[in-house]
């Protein structure tokens, strides 16, 4: 099984990253997610940061790292786990990359407080680079109304594979065609929108609500490798 697949001139990895000659882009880390669960009565032990760091170590050397939104999970300031992990993340990224661009996501309030301490970090609402538009996808603003290749996150797409005796497996995935790439969540925890099971109303991103997902190809990812699948509408037929 291949560990990466080329889509639209970029390399999509089974860890959920997109790699070009100059940059690496990942989305939706949701640091501090476990601690946020405690407030809802779920005592999930801390787990994902270690995995996220391991996945980052596997990334190749590039000039630029682009974080496409929702680096941290919480809106409030009360989550100490978030802050420690966020700082550790930026410490690491600052050593490895020459430039770090954070594209703002809907969970990233107060993030600037942390990132302002790092010289290499730039904070933007969207990024135009290499004739591609990178935005989080929680807002369907003007820059995303273009024929250029758009790269968004926010949706955390996943796909369920099932056979006829009923064994099923849910995997995170990339959704793509030549104008759009929807990235899976880099976080191993954040549950996602199952494209084989959702209706248009269930989609999170207004961008996808506009464009529709039926004609997007699916690239499912797992520790073991990438699984190339046809368009969404073929899978739900």
């Amino acid at each position: 099984m291949k560990k990466s697949v080329k889509i639209n001139g970029l390399l999509a990895t089974n860890t959920g990253a997109l790699i070009s000659k100059e940059f690496v882009v990942i989305a939706d880390l949701h640091l501090g997610y476990e601690r946020a669960m405690v407030g809802s009565g779920l005592f999930v032990p801390q787990y994902q940061f270690k995995i996220i760091m391991e996945k980052l170590e596997m990334l190749p050397e590039r000039e630029m790292m682009i974080l496409n939104g929702d680096i941290k999970h919480e809106f409030s300031e009360n989550n100490p786990q978030e802050w420690t992990e966020t700082r550790k993340l930026f410490d690491y990224l600052s050593e490895r990359f020459d430039k770090i661009i954070v594209v703002r996501g809907n969970h990233d309030n107060y993030l600037r407080t942390v990132t302002s301490k790092y010289k290499k970090v730039e904070f933007v609402d969207y990024l135009e680079i290499d004739d591609k538009i990178i935005a989080h996808g929680h807002k369907d603003f003007l820059p995303l109304h273009t024929k250029k290749l758009k790269i968004i996150g926010h949706e955390h797409p996943s796909v369920t594979l099932r056979d006829d005796v009923g064994v099923s497996l849910k995997l995170p995935c990339f959704l793509y065609n030549d104008e759009l790439i929807v990235m899976p969540a880099f976080s191993p925890l954040a549950a996602g929108t199952d494209v084989t099971r959702c209706r248009k109303e269930d989609l999170l991103s207004p961008v996808l609500k506009r464009i529709g997902i039926g004609h997007l190809n699916v690239l499912a990812i797992d520790e073991e490798g990438c699984i190339e699948l046809p368009e969404v509408y073929e899978l739900v037929r």
Binding site: L161, V165, G225, I227, L235
Partner: peptide, 21 residues
């Protein structure tokens, strides 16, 4: 009913992939 899945993750993925296609 219930199910028994292939225990080896890699083989399970390949199996399901093949089935779906």
């Amino acid at each position: 009913s219930d199910t028994m899945r292939i225990q080896d993750k890699k083989k399970l993925l390949q199996y399901l992939h093949e089935y779906v296609l």
